[in-house]
Design a protein around this nucleic acid. Structure first.
Length: 357
DNA sequence: CCCGTCACGGTTGAG
DNA sequence: ACCTCAACCGTGACG
């Protein structure tokens, strides 16, 4: 995990292979699309491959979420909270019980069926890792297993329960000391020209605030918010809805991250660097554990945390050399005017931080 | 030219 | 502490 430098795609956009596009960009894609801007134009303007635009829009239409799916990990296939709970119960009821007996009981009690019953080795591991160590009732209960059963669809619209509220120790440690990369490059958010969508959008409004913050939110675990987000607005097909949720999610991270290290510009594109540093070293994924918590809380108070923080919408765009931009030329000069207004209203509709700072 | 789709090389994280 | 592997990612190319 050295620094993850972004790569530059054919359109001149910066991206990090394997990682999702920053939320801000995803959001913008959707916004633009809603304004009637064609995908191909969006692609060019935002410098995101059309395949990606297409995919994001498709997903948005399908799920109402602009967020990327949950990356990595495995579905809570068998060891769902509910299963763990049962195992724990069995174990507590009979400390000497064998894993295979537990397995049988899970089947007998209907907790699992033959398809999702944990293997004996899994059960052993559960006993060892989860039950053995945590003596007190735990997160599992709180995180509920409602999604337990639906664990399979975990990635769809529902978050896979992250029972991890407890797994802070897991990775975070690995953070090699938040090597705040290039620093919050005071991105000269040089956007192509006055015609660009950005301007049209008035996006700059929040860009200015957030450009700096880069996508730190993004740096956090996007997948996580996706969960949150999806749960929050399962099918709100309104940008606003999204916006809100998105921000909600972002806020959590922004807050904590700012706490940790002013910005962790994990995603700051260094203008001077052409290849901006897209995502800081994994290390800059500031401790998850921390977040989970705040995340949880804000979940319970969906709107209480609405205070926008500058930098919440990490609008890390592809800050490329302006000059470069010149030739690139924004297409479709058409009805920008129209869009402008439309978008502006949209943007305003967004709970943009009327300068929160 | 537009756009849906998919192989590819990549990352992530639970098991 | 590691490895596996299945999930996801965006790009780029094809049709």
């Amino acid at each position: 995990m050295e620094q993850t430098y972004g790569e530059v795609n054919q359109l001149g956009g910066v991206f990090v292979n394997g990682r999702p596009l920053p939320n801000a960009i995803r959001l913008r894609i959707v916004e633009l699309a809603q304004l009637g801007i064609r995908p191909c134009d969006i692609s060019r303007q935002l410098r995101v491959s059309h395949g990606c635009v297409s995919k994001i829009l498709a997903r948005y239409h399908e799920t109402g979420s602009i967020l990327p799916g949950a990356i990595g990990g495995s579905k809570p296939r068998v060891t769902t909270p509910n299963v763990v709970k049962n195992i724990r119960d069995y174990k507590q009821g009979d400390p000497g019980i064998f894993a295979w007996e537990i397995r049988d009981r899970l089947l007998a009690d209907g907790v699992c069926d033959k398809y999702n019953v944990p293997s004996v080795s899994s059960i052993s591991r559960i006993l060892r890792n989860k039950i053995g160590t945590l003596s007190q009732p735990n997160q599992y209960d709180s995180s509920k297993q409602s999604s337990t059963q639906s664990g399979l669809s975990y990635n769809h619209i529902y978050p896979y329960t992250y029972p991890n509220a407890m797994s802070p120790n897991g990775k975070m440690g690995s953070g090699p000391g938040v090597p705040v990369t290039a620093g919050h490059v005071s991105i000269s958010r040089a956007w192509p020209s006055a015609h660009t969508v950005t301007n049209i959008l008035g996006i700059r409004a929040f860009m200015d605030h957030q450009a700096i913050a880069g996508t730190e939110g993004y740096a956090q675990k996007m997948e996580d918010w996706s969960s949150v987000n999806r749960a929050t607005f399962p099918s709100a097909h309104a940008v606003n809805g999204i916006e809100k949720a998105t921000m909600d999610a972002d806020i959590k991270y922004a807050q904590s991250s700012s706490t940790l290290s002013s910005y962790v510009p994990a995603c700051a594109y260094s203008p001077s660097n052409q290849y901006g540093v897209y995502s800081g070293p994994a290390g800059s994924y500031v401790s998850p554990g921390h977040h989970w918590q705040s995340q949880g809380s804000s979940l319970s108070h969906p709107s209480s945390g609405m205070t926008m923080h500058a930098g919440d919408i990490h609008s890390s765009m592809v800050f490329k050399h302006p000059s470069r931009e010149g030739d690139r030329k924004p297409p479709s000069p058409m009805s920008k005017h129209h869009q402008h207004e439309a978008l502006n209203s949209v943007v305003h509709g967004l709970n943009l931080p009327t300068s929160s700072s």
